[in-house]
Design a protein around this nucleic acid. Structure first.
Lengths: 325, 325
DNA sequence: CTAGGTGCAAATAATTTGCAGAGGC
DNA sequence: GCCTCTGCAAATTATTTGCACCTAG
């Protein structure tokens, strides 16, 4: 797994000078996976160049945090830890009070709420930290908990991305199938049928890819969830499908529901797709976002045309009514 | 404002001895409003008893954290701060990188999500920390921002509690009025009408109290939100009312929707009511929870009776059908 | 009487700073 | 040549510990 590093030269803060020492420290730091303390980093750096002082490491770390390359995290151990900030721009931590190990998770829903609240308070957020303290499964029960450490986070992230994508496709498929069967307008019906067909195809591709991913790591399916997102289950298409199921929806309304759903899912996938470094998960998200974007555009076009047609009909009818009176 | 202190003797951890020094430190600590550093507390304590050593303050602080009386919070200043944990069991912070001041908020929605995720990960959470770093309105724009510091948090909390209660009552009123007009079964109709009447009365009381609260502090209405909760706007009755508005709902379904709504709002109000120390806000929440509980019971009773009646009817009809054949 | 609490001073641990010298621009 | 970085050692800061003594149960 040869991870591409970000362009270091572009990450230099104002007035910083090039320096081989700094570059070395930055380089060693970037190659690490976990949360390093200043001293951990010092030890690692000294292994490659014994002539570097502790103060330089501290100073470089400060500089990296200022430049936005590193993030300072505090697990209440009495010292700070640092992690590269480009990998997962906003992730959260479980911190075990007993074994002091930490485990990461992402929650799109929590992020969205924090954004909303910060906006309401007119606070210019640069970073959000969520730490859940307590006792981990392992410490509480004894032993056998499938790990979710830094080495495999990426794969688990891809798995979760894929699960979310699949669940969303399923909802979408159900939604468009039902919408097609309920729509009387022939052009609208054709649009929904086309979308249903696309969802079905994409669903097949995703399921194949999901199976491939599982084949790479037999324990993958059992590993704990990393990315939490309630969209597929509670919102997006599921909600739209429920609305259709209740019935009493016009063709135009069905289109609007579809637009709302596609917009929601496009937004979600784009957000995560853009935020992550190159990885299987990122790619899945980006592909997905593009597809949803296409659907969205199609629905909007269709909606405009339908409204236009209906408007014409209504105007004609109104004109006819006036002429009769 | 003479705040009642919690029962200190009940907060003693296993094996702890009574000691006048400890009691003094605990007492001084409990009287404070903000986030104290160990040294701040040391200074305050020495003002009342100059013969207390720094180490004792540190040790007592540790003991208090262990006993759950105090909570350690870290704003990344290189030292820990402590706050009484009984006041707001789980609150979150905005931390300004420029002026280093912090401002609190509560979000029932974020709490619920964290609970859910911790459950999914089988993590025994004891505490959750949410910190939003960035730049505050004051530092960014210049000056005039209505404060929300520790002195008035309580009043703002009461205001927000009241706003949420009022919004929920409004939704409830709308829901029950519509449900009554749609329900054909006379007993069911009477139940909904009775509930609508109660919501209306309670709404009046709440609005009067809200006006009284505003009269105490002319700036109160303009102060930033402290307690964020999307329930009243997005969920609870609003959703039920929308469901009714879409129509096609049977009497029995209307009762079920009502039960779901009351259960949701009862849960929310109980949760906050129980969590807070004595205050206007707590009282509002508890009253509200009790009222919702009553409504909930009434709806459940009504639901059981209706189902019974329908079942009887259906059985009778079925029996009639069989006898004809 | 004894386990645990307390003050003082010294120890520890993480991080910062002063200063003389080295190196990039 | 100037300005910034760097290493070293010393300083600073928050917090903990050793130890002799004290006090509640």
């Amino acid at each position: 797994m040869n991870r591409p590093l970000p362009d270091i030269s572009s990450l230099r803060p104002r007035g910083g000078k090039r320096s081989s020492k700094r570059d070395l420290i930055l380089n060693v730091f970037m190659r690490q996976e976990g949360h390093l303390s200043a001293d951990d980093l010092y030890d690692l750096v000294r292994r490659e160049d014994a002539g570097i002082g502790r103060a330089t490491v501290y100073r470089t770390l400060q500089w990296m945090v200022g430049a936005g390359v590193a993030r300072k995290v505090d697990f209440g151990e009495g010292r700070s830890r640092f992690e590269p900030s480009f990998r997962h721009p906003r992730h959260f931590h479980f911190v075990c009070n007993t074994c002091h190990r930490s485990s990461e998770f992402l929650s799109s829903d929590i992020e969205a709420l924090i954004d909303e609240i910060a906006l309401a308070r007119e606070f210019a957020m640069t970073q959000a930290v969520v730490q859940v303290f307590g006792e981990c499964e392992q410490c509480r029960t004894g032993r056998p908990v499938p790990v979710l450490d830094h080495g495999i986070t990426e794969r688990v992230f891809a798995r979760d991305a894929m699960r979310i994508a699949i669940e969303t496709e399923r909802s979408g498929l159900e939604f468009y199938t039902r919408a097609a069967s309920l729509t009387r307008d022939p052009q609208g019906k054709a649009t929904f049928e086309r979308l249903a067909k696309e969802e079905k195809e994409h669903l097949g591709t995703l399921e194949r890819r999901y199976a491939e991913l599982l084949a790479e790591d037999p324990d993958l399916e059992a590993r704990p969830t990393f990315l939490f997102f309630k969209g597929p289950a509670n919102g997006l298409f599921a909600e739209g499908a429920a609305e259709l199921r209740r019935g009493g929806v016009t063709d135009l309304q069905a289109l609007l529901i579809g637009i709302r759903c596609e917009r929601g899912s496009h937004k979600f996938f784009k957000r995560y797709g853009e935020r992550f470094e190159d990885s299987e998960g990122k790619q899945i998200f980006l592909e997905f976002a593009a597809e949803e974007r296409m659907h969205l555009d199609m629905l909007i076009r269709e909606y405009r045309e339908q409204r236009e047609r209906l408007g014409t009909k209504r105007r004609r009818r109104a004109a006819a009514g006036r002429s009769v009176q």
